[in-house]
Amino acid sequence: MTSANPPYTTKQWILASKPLGAPILEGPDATFKLQTTTLPSLNEGQVLCKVRYFSNDTGLRNFIQSSVAPERFYVPTVPLGSPMRSGIIAEVVESASPNFKTGDLVMDFHLGIWSELVILDAANCQPLAPLPGDLPLTHYLGAFGASGIAAYGGLYFAAEAKPEHTIVISAAAGATGSMAIQIAVKLLGAKRVIGIAGSDEKCAWVRDQLGAHECINYKSPTFVQDLKAVTPDEVDVYFDNVGGSVLDAMLTRMKRFGTVAVCGAVSSYNSGEPMALSNWFEVISMRINIRGFIMLDYMEKIPTILGELIGAAADGRIKLQDGETVVEAPIEDQPRVWMQLFSGQNQGKLLTKLIV
């Protein structure tokens, strides 16, 4: 990054090829290309920012290639030749807005880009207030960002979960799943909360640190039997982050008129094949309600949601220790860091701390 005098130049990743399967990180067919770009001068109401952190989310995979037609997607997708998008925390370097000054820290949920420097519309920037107990501001991209809001909204509004319910949450050691576990246990007070994760170590963390009553490993050869054993009274609410074979197994454990709240389908994001469900008739036989949702559905409720989540963290009901995986990396490594999500290398929220 060079910035002796405006105009500024910056390295940034652009979408060079839309992947049909897993993104390709090297070679002539690489999904992303690193380029150096000269930024334009600021317009009134804009800020120039130096990126401190990138938010790494599995859902970004659908921004670059999805089975959903672009006009039906819930946010604009990334066109070929355009910078890759993600949530960011950034520091204001120059401001053409009365609302921000040099040195301010700001966040943008999903309109930031994989770039060392970014120009943002001040109207889309959220100023970052200090968090209680000296909690790191990075939680604004996870527990107090899209992950926490999706977890809360999915349980309370999409699933209409109740204290008397048995709730199962997949990807329970991930950013959204780990918050959903704690919200279900500590805030909702659900009768029984069961996590599904990808290793015995992660399951132990979900049980011992997050408070789940049970957690089972979907990679175990006895997963289907284990699932049946931990749900003897069947399941009222399934919070689905993964789709695929886990969803297929869960359909056989749902109560009549139970609810599946669908937050994601990460098992299929890098697959060129359609999702196959052999137990789909369970939806009819048990009259299961399947409800898709996104965090943006609850924008008007965000102040209330964040007030409750931050308050619960401040008084110790929700624990955020070990709930982030922060990787320090230069801009050149950002695609590789993001791809760690799809091999389960993170515990909780995966963030890139950008080093220059």
Rank of each mutant, 00 (worst) to 15 (best):
K50W: 02
I64G: 10
L42P: 09
G21S: 12
T37P: 02
G21E: 13
L34A: 07
I64S: 11
G27H: 02
Q46Y: 08
K50E: 15
A30L: 05
N43C: 03
R52M: 10
A22W: 00
F54V: 09
S17K: 15
S55K: 09
Q46L: 03
L25H: 05
K18F: 01
Q35V: 15
S41K: 10
Q65Y: 11
E44H: 06
T36S: 14
F54W: 12
A30H: 03
L60D: 08
R61A: 15
T31E: 10
T36H: 06
F32N: 09
R52H: 13
K18I: 04
F32T: 12
S55H: 06
L34D: 06
A22P: 03
D29H: 12
S17D: 13
C49S: 05
N62Y: 03
A22E: 08
A16N: 14
L60M: 15
Y53D: 05
V51I: 13
D29G: 04
S41C: 08
A22N: 01
G21F: 02
F54L: 14
A16H: 10
T36V: 14
I24G: 00
G45T: 09
G59I: 01
K33Q: 15
N56Q: 13
F63E: 14
K50V: 05
T37L: 08
A30M: 03
L39H: 07
R52A: 12
T38W: 06
L25K: 01
N43Q: 13
T58P: 15
P28H: 06
L39S: 07
K33C: 04
S66I: 07
G27L: 02
P40W: 08
F54I: 11
T58G: 15
G59C: 02
R61W: 06
I64Y: 09
T31K: 08
S41W: 00
T31Q: 07
Q46S: 07
P23K: 04
G59D: 00
P19H: 08
